[in-house]
Design a protein around this nucleic acid. Sequence first.
RNA 1: GGUCACGUAGUUCAGUUGGUUAGAAUGCCGGCCUGUCACGCCGGAGGUCGCGAGUUCGAGUCUCGUCGUGACCGCCA
Length: 581
Amino acid sequence: MYRTHTCGELNIEHIGEYITLSGWVQKSRDLGGMTFLDLRDRYGITQLVFDMETRPELCEQARKLGREYVIRVQGLVVERSNKNLKIPTGEIEIETSNMEVLSSSDLPPFTIEEKTDGGEELRMKYRYLDLRRRPLQENLFLRHKMAQEVRKFLDGKDFIEIETPYLIKSTPEGARDFVVPSRMNQGQFYALPQSPQTFKQLLMISGYDRYFQLVKCFRDEDLRADRQPEFTQIDCEMSFVEQEDVLNMFEGMCKHLFRNVKEIQLTDDFPRMPYDEAMRDYGTDKPDLRFGMKLKEITSLVQGKGFRVFDQVEYIGGISVSSCAGYSRKQLDQLTEFVTQPQVGAKGLVYLKINEDGSFKSSVDRFFNDENFHQWKKVLEAKEGDLLLILAGSRRDTLFALSELRLEMGKRLDLRNSKEFIPLWVIDFPLLEWDEDKSRFTAMHHPFTSAKSEDIKWLDSDPGRVRANAYDLVINGVEIGGGSIRIHTKKEQEQMFRHLGFTNEEAEAQFGFLMNAFKYGAPPHGGIAFGFDRLVALFGGSESIRDYIAFPKNNSGRDVMIDSPSAISEEQLKELNLRAR
RNA sequence: GGUCACGUAGUUCAGUUGGUUAGAAUGCCGGCCUGUCACGCCGGAGGUCGCGAGUUCGAGUCUCGUCGUGACCGCCA
């Protein structure tokens, strides 16, 4: 037998028991006359003690063990004379009487402890060693727990988990596809799914009513801290539902997760905010509601006063930063630098300090008087001691820059507490958005999303004005999930494809199967998909999803551990009738 | 496709205006130590300063290129 117990469970109750443990040597402390050794497995750490007086040979042997050796020991559980109350097993230790090396180990390239000395790159190369560390294990335990709770909740609501294929058909809409050459059908390719969208809709037509799947999805786009080329979604679809039904169901799922995983009770209904309001007040479709600092437009207020920068632009707006009127020249310069960096893209920054005594100090004193500034103060809902930060430019770019500035100030003022969770449904998204490069409208969500019935009348005359039955769940400024009520008639789907610039032939070739299925009794349906990796990272208090994925890819989409992607052999290429250029 | 940052001992980092023999911590090896748990003390080994060119009397340091890593923009229906 390798073990009677794990390294995390022995305590004062087990004193006097003769036990067997197996695990990894984390660290040894050789005091000469005696040696202490920390034995680790995924459950915890138990201290082994070897005494030179009672068992000299065994103690000698223990002193020679290196880090990460795998050993099995037998011994007696005894109470420590010096207890370590920092760890659960700290009141006991094992008086070892037998020890056997099961596997030796080279010296690991970084220390495998709670806090490692290893850098990102090295840890990725030796991911299997990094995964031995407690923090990484806790992340994967959290992921497991959340997956189980999702299944528990959805199963309880009569959802059934159905697997959909990974080898499917490439379509030009949306992200780039990963493609897989077919050997049996030379010159043809499968694509890996960006999402199981059409399959789950077909399942609704098949009458399964409530479907879900924890499913890998694939997108061949550049990576970010919160984006991997393969990622996991909680993919869901329901029949005979309206938007409210979907929102309520999955608000329930989120509350279930918060309650059962984080022990956080979210009792209030999640607020709902139309897309237009989110853009107006926060400059983004995923506002972080952990703090206020709403964007306010002051265009009409400030134009025509002779300040050319303001007079020549479409939009002028700002935020009021509480109690920051005391910002120094240097701090304001830093903020200017922040907003003018290419990623934010503002041309400059105008500030107005509202001093505690009610006086004003601004970078545009020459053009505006105190009466003007009083108006700014009023519109921006500012008070004495606040700092107003104003940006100007095109509406779209300036809202974006203000949104970035707002988040930056939230960060500087420590208003983005990772232990606090503020959910939000963003609703009433536009159905279509104009794509400059393609010179046509594209679906903002996806081409299967239905339009609001009251807006359909503008579909031909003013397509950009049509709102969709589409919604996103945003938590703390992170887009956690999104979905829509789908089109379920052939006619409407054909109309949509037409608006997206598909010819009838293209629509037929790519989505004929779906429109055909619509002919045979398609129920009204809708659904949602959650980014599972992001959700886990959010629960774990991190912005990067990499630490919540066992074997993630690096910034360039490489797995540096297995060194992939890699070239394939001539023989493989020949079989596929392909040539690498 | 683009912007920025980083690359020095096994590891994490420091390295001044371009100037003598490139340092620290930690890890590792050896010795001492019977209550450690960040053990302690003494000693030791360990470097193609990512790679390539250039400037210079002289380059870890400056310039250009290149590779790698990270963050971001574009992109992500």
